[in-house]
Design a protein around this nucleic acid. Sequence first.
RNA 1: GCCGGUGUGGUGGAAUGGUAGACACAGGGGACUUAAAAUCCCCCGGCAGCAAUGCUGUACCGGUUCGAGUCCGGUCACCGGCACCA
Length: 809
Amino acid sequence: MKYDFAAIEKKWQARWAETKPYAAVTGERDKPKFYGLIEFPYPSGQGLHVGHPRPFTAMDIITRKKRMQGYNVLFPIGFDAFGLPTENYAIKNHVHPAAVTKHNIENFTSQLKMLGYGFDWDRVTDTTDPSYYKWTQWIFLQLYKHGLAYKATMPVNWCTSCKCVLANEEVVEGVCERCGSPVIRKEKSQWMLAITKYAERLLDDLEDVDYIERVKIQQRNWIGRSTGAEVTFRATNGDGIVIYTTRADTMFGATYMVLSPEHELVKKWLPELANAEEVEAYQRAAAAKSDLERTDLAKDKTGVRLDGVRAVNPVTGKEIPIFISDYVLSTYGTGAIMAVPGHDQRDWDFAKKFGLPIIEVVSGGDVEKEAFVAKDDTAIMTNSGFLNGKSVKEAIPAMIEYLEKEGIGSAKVNYKLRDWVFSRQRYWGEPIPMVLCPDCGWVCVPEEQLPLLLPMVESYEPTDDGESPISKMTDWVNTTCPKCGKSAKRETDTMPQWAGSSWYFLRYMDPHNDAAPVSKEAEEYWGPVDWYNGGMEHTTLHLLYSRFWHKFLYDIGVVHTKEPYAKRTSHGMILGEGGEKMSKSRGNVVNPNDIVEQYGADTMRLHIMFIGDFEKAVSWSNEAVKGSKRFLDRCWNLMDMVSDEEGISEKNAATVHRTIRKVTSDIDELKMNTAIAALMTMVNEFYANGLSRGDLKALLLLLSPFAPHMTEEMWELMGFAKETGKMAMQNPWPEFDESKTVASTVEMAVQIQGKLRGTINVPTDSDESAVIAAAKENERVAKALEGMQIVKTILVKNKLVNLIVKPAS
RNA sequence: GCCGGUGUGGUGGAAUGGUAGACACAGGGGACUUAAAAUCCCCCGGCAGCAAUGCUGUACCGGUUCGAGUCCGGUCACCGGCACCA
């Protein structure tokens, strides 16, 4: 009988839809729970591409194995469906984004079902469903009520093409992460979320979670904690200028100061400056620069000296000039620095350009050539009064202690992380449930009025003045103040795409709850997510944002754990043939549908796992898929050669037990490629030795997470389903017997001086004398030993023996 | 510049400090077949050799070790992240 994958896959998918073997049971106490999560897809119009099945199949395999190991498994799926591509498609084709979304979700759903994933389809969550975004809005209101959401006018990243504000995390190398258009700075009033208040916890709690190291490192870098000191410099007009420095030790070398162009003291001082016009011109020029231009011009320092105000270095007592320059950022530290050109390269560059004095206060370099920035023990303070002779490491705390005693400074921790710009001037997102009343200011939409539905509009086009399309819907915008009843206006901006995805994993636990985002009972049972796999590109966006929301929900008692995800792993990208990124323009996009049609879902699943190291990028090869199909064919054909023998056969025992051990541990370690290789080896052995019914049974159970359709069909055809009364996937995961993994004889390597000279077959666990005796009988070894005497032997049991020899005397 | 990662056959990739190249793809040979496909079996890093076998080989240079793809020091190349963060 031929392996008719199309019919088999259709049959089993229908049976699973009917019997729901993947349903998770909230509150099941007889089994341990396991919550496996994958990042829910954005339902794009192109449908699933080969990038999706990689993480999905891996977690499907993990959760299938967990079920067989007796866990109550939650493996859910949903759709992160708000977002720009859908909106843009809707604009172009004059259809409502909701209709586009519905259509795309249907398409995705059928594709996911086609691949045979064991999702609990009764828990599907869609971020654009009002019954879902009701709770996204509710969480926003809680954030607002706890002072973590606020409206602020500030320079924000503005995408010139999307006509929309972007979060810092969405700007990559000065251009929009989505569309690649230049990003400029624009003063706008925006909703902000105070993620910086959680910076320390987001950093510290990384210690308690099992994330792969590069994710932790990337989050740490993004949060960017630095320790230093804040110091007040006195200006000649009496004002205090607060600066932040990590190098308090170098204060004796501070020969000038720099404020960011946007610094408030500059505005205050303008009237008393002799060159106010020049200063204002510089400020205007800096504001007009895009992020890209700011970084492009990094090499060439610009700035203007403030003519009329100077500062006093508090440790030297000397008067020093003050500049404004855009190399000092308004958004980090205090927006003002003391410049130490001898020991900071940026200050050095600026000082050289403006002819400012450079003083060496740390010896060891040549400050005439470049800034000397070393901080190790060999760097010794000089020209620095009471610090002279100390190392930099000693000098920093000594100076901070001095500053604190004098009352002019104190230790300070700073973070690179900025607050999260939370409003978007687009249609297809969650409306922000706030009302602006001329008398009461910002007022929350009452919780009982949620969800605040998106209004139907005629056009979704963003406006050139940077207002949301909803702003034109006067019926919707004009409302009454929930507090005082007077006429008021609704917020017309919507939430960013990251809002809905910041808590969706909680909704899966209790997807139909209308009284709370998630019930206490369900959250306490399922939380936290045991294993979350997703892309590296979400490390500083989604992953950080959702940790922040979760910590907030913890603080207000919605969830019982500080961290949402106990474990986080990450998959590499699937590249096109030749290692290039898949893209429509290159024409190298692989559609999973085509693979499934040609080879079947089981082959697709198996191959995407076999293709290479899960964590690394791999290139897709249409040719290589055949190998995975061939393997499944070989498995199928085993049915023709299986003997009547029940139980694991004697001749295959070592192979079978070893394979069970290998596959079991490899799945847990996400080494699917070597797990499959081990299964292939086992099948090759079966072809060489023949196999029993028990051998085949073990193979089917081990293979069932990878190729669930074919294994169920074979399980049934072989009569195993009748015997056990269960589908293969409902049987216990096979156990291995360590004692049976070893064969009676082993092949050992014989080395002489560390070089391989031959191999010998000896009984397992042979001792040194037996091994050496056997080695001497080996022709090649004997030849190499001629005229030599053995002076030392190193024996690695059952592996190798290394003979150290010297010429016989 | 800073922080990560990677470098192994024609290709994708395996190797708790212990027989480098498992397992596959491609390629070559054979069996079956009227033939092809499919299937089954064998070979497949390089150099030399009919072969047995020998030498050599994991980006490069050096070190530690009985033994190094693996550990240490240095160099080069590529990939990812951050980037005027004081």
